[in-house]
């Protein structure tokens, strides 16, 4: 780990000023990704601004009828919050599908959004990586790429964003509240994370000098018909090969509104509104779900080690939508997929 200067911020304005004053300073909250990256010399901040004492841990109702989650609320606090469990069980389920209890106890909501999109080459400073060192190349494309992207990748980067929580937040159409030197602004969740394009070194559209303060959930939580289905190489505590957040509302037997987002398949949580539109107004049956899966995966592209993910994703989408429609969401402790 590199040597760095450390200071504690006591309010949001102070934290933002300190960040604006030094481009290579970083905020630290739970630290579960940043410290890990620092140990590998992938991240080398000159300064750490400890934001753990900022008053951003609350989870509260909003005037709009939704819920606001403070950026420093831990993953555990959010997953087991009575309001989140009752109104946004998709979010609880996704969080509990990710990491381990120890990590969820430390990791924060804002930090979860800002964990790096990554792969094993990004972590290995002995190899080239366009995300770590722009212009050096992407060895994953012709290398070991089992965990890599099948959607939205570029010739510069095929890494995936590993968050489960963010897949649910994408499906729920959350809003990210941020504060910078010129004040507050909101970023729609779909616009928060980026595709790699020609700038794989940038994972998000958050400004260099901005701090996430909260995540707002809209009123509709899809609490009756949802499922978060995560498929991975071991039954727990592993990143998704493919995960699916599915959520539906109904008019009788007809789907009124659908949400569909995937994890483990792209540089960002992959919500597809065209696939959602293919579900709306249709009966909830296998043919409908197959059509939506085909729409979502129409442009999917596999590499030497991960082409299996396209078929895996197709089946996972159909299964998660079936679970959501039946009101029998995937249980994260019982690993049997039904």
């Amino acid at each position: 780990m590199n040597r760095f200067e450390y200071a504690r911020a006591s309010d949001v304005a102070e934290a933002v000023r300190a960040r604006a004053a030094d481009a290579s300073a970083r905020f630290i909250a739970g630290g579960t990704n940043l410290i890990d990256l620092m140990k590998e010399n992938v991240a080398r901040p000159t300064r750490l601004i400890d934001i753990n004492h900022l008053p951003l841990r609350g989870i509260e109702d909003t005037d709009a009828g939704g819920v606001r989650i403070g950026a420093l609320a831990t993953n555990t606090a959010v997953a087991y919050d009575a309001r989140i469990e009752a109104r946004y069980p998709l979010l609880s389920s996704a969080i509990l599908a990710g990491a381990s209890p120890q990590l969820r106890n430390a990791a924060t909501t804002g930090g979860n959004l800002l964990q790096r999109t990554r792969c094993y080459y990004f972590y290995d400073t002995g190899t080239p990586c366009n995300k770590r060192e722009p212009g050096t190349g992407c060895p994953a494309i012709a290398g070991v790429n089992r965990i890599h992207a099948i959607l939205g990748a570029s010739e510069n980067c095929i890494a995936t964003h590993p968050s489960d929580m963010c897949v649910a937040l994408a499906a729920l159409a959350a809003t990210v509240r941020v504060t910078g030197p010129s004040g507050e602004r909101e970023i729609a969740f779909a616009d928060f994370h980026r595709l790699p394009g020609d700038t794989p070194e940038r994972d998000t559209n958050l400004g260099e000098d901005e701090l996430i303060t909260a995540i707002d959930l809209p009123p509709e939580g899809f609490a009756s018909n949802y499922s978060y289905l995560k498929l991975r190489d071991r039954l727990s505590y592993a990143f998704a090969l493919v995960s699916v957040a599915a959520a539906l509302t109904f008019d009788g037997d007809t789907i009124r509104e659908a949400r569909l987002a995937l994890g483990g398949v792209a540089h960002k949580p992959w919500r597809d509104t065209a696939a959602e539109a293919a579900l709306a107004g249709k009966p909830a049956n296998r043919a409908t779900f197959e059509t939506a899966a085909a729409a979502l995966l129409a442009d999917a592209r596999g590499y030497s080690g991960n082409a299996f993910k396209i078929e895996l994703a197709r089946r996972a989408i159909v299964r998660a939508l079936s679970q959501a429609a039946a009101g029998t969401p995937q249980v994260q402790t019982d690993k049997r997929v039904r």
Partner: peptide, 14 residues
């Protein structure tokens, strides 16, 4: 690295 007073307390590597 030295120390420097700033709005966010005192940054220090000490």
């Amino acid at each position: 690295m030295g120390t420097e007073a700033s709005a966010a307390g005192v940054f220090s590597a000490a």
